[in-house]
Simulated assay, not measured.
Amino acid sequence: MSGLKDFLSAIPIGESRSPRRGEHRVRALVFDTYGTVCDFYGPMTRQFERFARERGEECDAHVMTVAWRTAYAMSCFQQAATESEFSPLRQIQRANLEKVMNEHYPAPVSPEELNQLTTVWDRLDPWPDTVEGLHRLKGQAIIAPVSNGNYIDMVNLARYAGLPWDIILGSSVAGMYKPHPDAYLKSIAALNLPPEEVCMVAAHQAELPYAAGHGMQTAFIMRPDEFGGITKPRDPEPGKPYLDAAEIYPEGDWTYITDSFIDLAEQIRQS
């Protein structure tokens, strides 16, 4: 088992579906974070470009950013699929970065430099609608990350980006990375709410069927600049994973479909 299709097929999807809009009250919203709440592409490409410039070297910052993010996603899928021992995400990111630098950077990089570069995950920029939208949503329901970021990753990012979470849920609660069922079910249990009153918000539709399968409401948000403007086509090539492209076309019967947290708050208010 080594490819995305293998990993995802090994992770069970429940038999429930997402409730229809307005069918149940939204009492909590839980969010994917990297790419959904915050922009990883811009901060990472700028960091790689600055790092190379200061050393008088050249690199393809786009390729390196996409490779690092893809390695992150595949590492989490693998852990969820194999139910292997839970490792801190910072450790995973650091190991993946070392491989990326070995493959794509033209010169040796010290352990200290790798450690410093890895901290960029603590300094991702919120999307323009994020902070205002989260505050609006917080006025209607509990808001929390259900992220593959661990407690400290989410605390550092929230402090940097001004994210007004009520509680931090996700991988550290479950001891599993998404989309393992525990990442959702243990987060829901921590809220003491039924799944149908919790809405999973994500820009990545590979994740949403798993949330829907547990009976959660789902919200797909389009983030067209997630990969610097590269988007997945309306008619994707069969079998191609498109881990390097933003999703802008709905591919499922999600409870909500939106292009901003501000709009999502209004949709929920009107439901």
Rank of each mutant, 00 (worst) to 15 (best):
M154S: 15
E98N: 04
N96L: 11
F7H: 13
G170N: 03
H180A: 15
Y249R: 09
P241K: 01
V198T: 07
Q140R: 15
G56Y: 09
Y184T: 09
S147N: 09
E266G: 08
W127V: 11
P238D: 00
A81K: 04
G139T: 06
I262L: 10
Y184V: 00
P181S: 10
S260Q: 05
K232R: 15
V66S: 07
A189F: 08
A206G: 14
E83N: 14
A265G: 05
A219E: 06
D182F: 12
M101K: 07
E83K: 09
E83L: 03
L169Y: 11
R90T: 12
S9P: 02
T33D: 00
Q79C: 04
I143Y: 08
W165I: 02
L124D: 15
M200G: 04
F31N: 07
G229V: 01
A183N: 12
G175P: 14
L185G: 01
I11L: 12
A67F: 03
F220Y: 13
D225W: 11
P241H: 05
V173K: 12
N156E: 14
A141N: 04
I13H: 02
P250N: 10
R159M: 14
G213F: 10
L243Y: 02
F40V: 03
R53M: 05
D39W: 04
I13D: 01
N148D: 15
A202T: 14
R159S: 13
M154H: 02
T36Q: 02
M216P: 07
E251A: 11
P181Y: 15
E15T: 13
R223M: 09
D39I: 00
I248L: 09
N148L: 10
F77Q: 00
D225C: 07
D259E: 13
E58L: 00
F7I: 02
T45G: 10
A189N: 14
T255K: 04
S171R: 03
L114K: 14
T218M: 00
V30M: 11
V66K: 06
F40N: 01
P250G: 08
E247K: 06
Q270C: 09
R21C: 13
P88E: 06
E207F: 08
E103M: 01
S87G: 00
L169N: 11
M176L: 05
G22Q: 03
L8A: 02
S18P: 08
R20S: 13
P126G: 13
C59R: 06
P164W: 06
L124A: 11
Y105E: 12
E54F: 07
R90Y: 13
D166L: 03
E251K: 00
A52P: 07
E85A: 14
F48N: 06
F31V: 10
A219F: 03
R17C: 00
K186T: 11
M44I: 06
L134F: 14
Y177C: 02
K240R: 15
E251D: 04
I143S: 10
H180K: 10
D6T: 02
W121P: 01
P194V: 11
P106Q: 01
S187E: 05
T218D: 05
P194M: 05
A246I: 02
D125G: 02
I13C: 12
T255G: 09
L114Q: 05
R50L: 12
G42D: 05
G42N: 10
R234C: 04
A28F: 11
E54N: 14
R27K: 15
W165N: 12
E57G: 06
I262T: 15
L243S: 04
L185T: 14
T118E: 14
E132D: 14
N115Q: 14
D253K: 11
D253F: 00
I13G: 08
A141P: 12
